[in-house]
Write a protein that binds this DNA or RNA. Structure first.
Length: 540
RNA sequence: GCUCCUAUAGUGUAGUCCGGUUAAGCAUACUGCCCUCUCAAGGCAGUGACUCGGGUUCAAAUCCCGAUGGGAGCACCA
């Protein structure tokens, strides 16, 4: 019924009549046996039997409103006040993808209007992180490049009566906001405001005076209740030093920057949603062009804190090593862990532009990553909880083993004698009298099982349904530390077992791999070579 | 407390604006089978969802009202 009305809209006005017809037909059909129905369909409506065509999935993000090919400008405005993490990646990817989608421009703008928080170190880390992600910008700038412009626009707002200088105490301002009451400063005339503005340049101390936008103290949206436009900060700015002491607030800076930079579409995370109104109001008061503002949900992984507030104490207490600790969701940590930038991008694209809260489990990122990593990670043997195995009658003194099961990644030669290590877990499953296969080597008959195992080479062994295990020759075994990162927090509590460290043996070929290369330890999982003596577990 | 945002399988989402062509698509997870000198990858199949209660309508995941859960804002941070 729905289908009929959907495909033939002309029937919609005659719904009553059709309903009767349909019930009659359905009743008739129901009289028929299953076989008869089948026959009827085959003879008269064979198209029903052909499988449905797959619905085309949209590639990338949804289309934008008011977006013209070649004219979209987006931007990513991080504050250089910390190391970049997966949340930054989301904002950067969404904005840059839209620019790409419409053949437009993408701006990186360091949002540095709070000298107390910002540092060159973070500025650099953000650039490194974005470069690693493969994000390219057409323009790189800093908000602080435009200080003179902010002053000019600030004066304009003061002179047009859209802004005033407030010398109330912080607590009173906050109280008035809550009670939706204007303070006495709001009634000062333009002349007085101009005088106070001059005084802000030297005389007033930080905290004694601020410039406020004349919003609406009665507004339901609390950020509209005369927000701050400028405040005095005496700290040393990381690039401008002590040149300025009056700094624009986020609202003013973002509004003006996006407008003059020609940004057409600005995407920010959801917590800024209420600021849309104030930004539009400021631009209206200045008669400046308003960009479209879009919002998306914050991205966090379950049990992996993003905020410095939580991470910093962990570092100080030595619970995590540094911002690149593989348990953290910083870009540097994800890189060390073996997550590929392409996977991060795909993953973030898959989350879409929803405003619903996202607390993604790490597995979905892992699934994307596995696909990128599988094709070119070297397969190597590695054993843990090593148990000794001696094998008699070996016909060869070395074997060549391919580095990848399907792709041509070369072979490696392993020298062998009768002494091997195998994994303790495998040793447990081995019983006297059984046959096992040492991968790439051949079948072994188990003659004796004790704390050590003794076996004998068999030329023609079983192939199916026997234990196939990896091994390491004792004489060339290379010991490395295997680091297995796990979830940092279970709910609110720190997971004391979040970092497992294993001493394992691997092949000497490990030493020839480049640092940072992805390896799949056979029957264990994907790992990234962190150094000659350490590997980090990426995922299964 | 006030205000705003949000709600689709275990998880993440598509669809919602503009009700019908969807017995709700995809990914991941899980299960089973195939392939396999890895417990990976690959191939095939399967389980599984529209928060709840009203209303409008011939027809509601989709529109309206209410409730409930989750998140955010009420900074001289961004």
């Amino acid at each position: 019924m729905g289908k009929i009305l959907g495909t033939k809209p002309e029937f919609r006005t005659k719904v009553k009549e059709i309903t009767e017809d349909i019930s009659e037909i359905v009743a008739n059909v129901n009289q028929l046996s299953f076989e008869e129905i089948k026959k009827e369909i085959r003879e008269n409506f064979p198209e029903i039997l052909t499988p449905k065509e797959k619905i085309e999935q949209r590639e990338g993000f949804p289309e934008l409103e008011n977006a013209e090919q070649g004219k979209v400008i987006t931007r990513f405005p991080p504050e250089p006040n910390g190391y970049p993490h997966i949340g930054h990646a989301k904002a950067a990817i969404i904005n840059s993808e839209y620019a790409k989608m419409y053949g437009g421009k993408f701006i990186l703008r360091m949002d540095d209007t709070n000298p107390e928080a910002e540092r060159m170190e973070y500025h650099a880390a953000i650039k490194v992180g974005l470069e690693w992600l493969g994000i390219k910008f057409d323009t790189v700038k800093s908000t602080s490049d435009d200080m003179e412009l902010f002053y000019e626009k600030g004066m304009e707002l003061i002179n047009s009566g859209n802004a005033y200088i407030c010398t109330c105490k912080r607590d009173d301002i906050s109280k008035n906001r809550r009670e939706r009451k204007a303070c006495k400063c709001s009634f000062k005339d333009v002349e007085k405001n101009n005088k106070n503005w001059e005084k802000m340049k030297e005389k007033f101390k930080p905290g004694e005076a601020i410039v406020r936008f004349r919003g609406d103290m009665k507004a339901d949206n609390a950020v509209m209740r005369d927000p701050v436009l400028f405040r005095i900060i005496d700290g040393k700015h990381y690039t401008l030093g002590e040149k300025y002491r009056i700094w624009p607030s986020y609202d003013l800076a973002v509004a003006i920057e996006d407008s003059i930079d020609g940004v057409t579409h600005a995407f920010r995370s959801k917590e800024f949603e209420l600021r849309k109104e104030i930004i539009d109001s400021i631009l209206d008061a200045l008669n400046m062009r308003k960009p479209y503002q879009g919002f998306f949900s914050r991205l966090e992984f379950k049990g992996m804190p993003i905020s410095k507030r939580i991470i910093k104490p962990l570092i100080e207490e030595g619970k995590v090593s540094w911002y690149d600790d593989p348990r953290l969701p910083t870009l540097e940590a994800l890189r060390r862990r073996g997550i590929k930038p392409e996977a991060i991008k795909k993953f973030i694209m898959s989350l879409g532009l929803t405003k619903a809260n996202t607390l993604a489990p790490f597995d979905s990122l892992e699934a994307f990553n596995r696909k990128f990593v599988d094709a070119n990670s070297t397969r190597l043997f590695m054993v843990r909880n090593a148990t000794k195995l001696t094998v008699k009658n070996l016909p060869v003194s070395s074997v060549e083993i391919p580095n990848h099961p399907v792709n041509n990644m070369g072979k490696r030669k392993i020298e062998i004698d009768e002494n091997f290590y195998i994994s303790g877990d495998d040793a447990k499953n081995i019983k006297q009298g059984m046959q096992i296969k040492l991968l790439g080597l051949g079948n072994i008959f188990i003659k004796k099982k004790g704390t050590e195992i003794e076996g004998e080479f068999i030329r023609e062994g079983d192939i199916t349904n026997i234990l196939k295990i990896q091994w390491i020759p004792q004489k060339t075994a290379h010991e490395i530390k295997m680091i297995i990162p796990k979830v940092l927090f279970n709910g609110e509590t720190f997971n004391e077992e979040s970092l497992e460290e294993l001493d394992v043996y691997t092949e000497p070929y490990y030493l020839q791999l480049k640092e940072g290369e992805e390896i799949q330890f056979v029957r264990f999982g994907y790992c990234r070579k962190d150094s000659q003596n350490q590997a980090i577990f990426t995922h299964k």
